[in-house]
Write a protein that binds this DNA or RNA. Sequence first.
RNA 1: CGGGAUGUAGCGCAGCCCGGUAGCGCGCUUCGUUCGGGACGAAGAGGCCGCAAGUUCGAAUCUUGUCAUCCCGACCA
Length: 490
Amino acid sequence: MAKELTTRQENYSQWYNDLVTKADLAENSAVRGCMVIKPYGYAIWEFMHDALDRMFKQTGHVNAYFPLFIPKSFLSKEASHVEGFAKECAVVTHSRLMSNPNGNGVIVDPESKLEEELIVRPTSETIIWDTYRNWIKSYRDLPILVNQWANVVRWEMRTRLFLRTAEFLWQEGHTAHATKEEALTEARKMLEVYAEFAEKHMALPVIKGIKSANERFAGAVETFCIEAMMQDGKALQAGTSHFLGQNFAKAFDVKFLNKENKLDYVWATSWGVSTRLMGALIMAHSDDNGLVLPPKVAPIEVVIVPIYKTDDQRQAVINYCVEMKERLEKKGLRVKFDDRDTQKPGFKFAEWEMKGVPVRLAAGPRDVENKTVELARRDTMEKMEISENGMEEKITALLEEIQENIYQKALKYRKDNTVRVDTWDDFKKNIENGKFVYAHWDGTTETELKIKEETKATLRCIPLDDDLEDGIDVYSGKPSKRRVIFAKAY
RNA sequence: CGGGAUGUAGCGCAGCCCGGUAGCGCGCUUCGUUCGGGACGAAGAGGCCGCAAGUUCGAAUCUUGUCAUCCCGACCA
């Protein structure tokens, strides 16, 4: 048995990449850099999707949908925007296929060449602002608070499952406002929504911050972000919210009459999170036994595994389990009763652990007799025997505890791997060791790029919640007003 | 797009150097024994060796091209 176990661990525990992507969440498709999200993985995405959607609606947003195809000319209207995306666009040039006259198969019909090429959206600012022009005439039409759930395509040179796929699912909010202040408030508000979602639902501690000019979104005036630390110490940008100023309004000629009866350009924001969040979830919480899901995004919160030998036992145990399942469901919990006759209990234990189910219950004849049930929690792998009486309350409370524990564990990990440094030697050493480094920065792109060149560390963000502090730049020695975060990133 | 590696059964791999028509482990099927932590035995099923050309009597193996994947750069959510 030990040998079998070893073999399987070798197969399954090659960290999240093999384990989760190949075993459960996705598998590579024939399309370059794309992913198949398997049902269990998609269920996790649906939970994140639904929770976010509720939060958007609570903050006054509504959903809409805009075309997948963007005429090439749209993309070129905002100069820095097109510059940012030009190198990673999929382009539609033809509209038809035809039988190959020279043999079998089909070829692109040269007659069907499009007059203007279409770009498969890498993001939708352009087509949405082209549409907003017709929606906005007066300050009375504002604000527009629209969100879109969609897929986008970015033909990246190098792809990475979940973190940077050629096609990914996301939501993109695009809002239009009458004043700069209102737009800025909106961008900040959505950053708060993302931070709350990451921390409360995904149990993922994040740092809210502002991007440096160098890392800013193409076309934005200011980019806000949430940054998270993965278990290898690398930083992952988990969500962004942009204050777009009047850049897109000017590019697409979106003007309105304000209260003073003066014509003005509209102020804009955009904000988005993607299936990259699933990558964050996996990389932040998984262990060698597989995925660890915070209960709030777990498609299954409790799995019940029956244990029996004989047919007589089977019936009694199943009845016992079904009753528990119904009682838990009555409390609003998502429960799976694994009554498969084809797998043994030990196999099921391992499988559900790999899938990250927060709580497992196992019941056999002994439990039926004693009115007990064995409970195992995924986050700590602890097992305990609890009484069947009042188990609903116990489990409900435990799920909250697990949610909190996973968050605290990630938070502690980040704290343990975050340092403040004041010398260049310390800086290099700590970046090399995969730490988040708080250091003084002189505020110039030049220094930022030099640091990146020498250490591969990027300026993750200028933290919003930190106090100002006088100091000198760790690289250039020039004066600095505050510390910023440097780290290696995905 | 540059540098490196890889592509053989559902998954993980061996075979390639030195050409002779494919093998191992897991998984899968059937039967029996098992069943409170990834069971065991026996018998089976499954592969135009990524794709396309070339060399050869003969190619998984040699040559060229091509596509894809992974790692390192540049780029990015």
